[in-house]
């Protein structure tokens, strides 16, 4: 499973990455969260609002920080 956090690396992006890691741990999954800060890669994905969370290339949410429960739900539905 490919899990990525897109964003320029401000506090919000770190918060999103932390929430995501917590959600992965809670779900008993083995996956690494990759942080992507390169601006052209952010635009290539069609992301306008950072931070954004992508699971297997699909944009789960952008422009806000979902809670751990919300991310767990997204991981389950994948």
């Amino acid at each position: 499973m490919e899990i990525q956090v897109y964003g320029k690396g401000c506090l919000k992006c770190h918060q999103l990455a932390a929430n995501t890691e917590q959600a992965i741990k809670d779900s008993g999954l083995e996956a690494k969260v990759e942080q992507i800060t390169e601006i052209n890669k952010i635009t290539e994905k069609g992301i306008m609002f950072t931070p954004a969370l992508l699971i297997d290339g699909k944009i789960i949410c952008q422009g806000k920080i979902p809670g751990v429960e919300e991310i767990k739900q997204a991981l389950k539905e994948r």
Partner: peptide, 11 residues
Amino acid sequence: CSCTVLPLFSG
């Protein structure tokens, strides 16, 4: 949030 400006600009 100042860090949202650049991705929007690029988009």
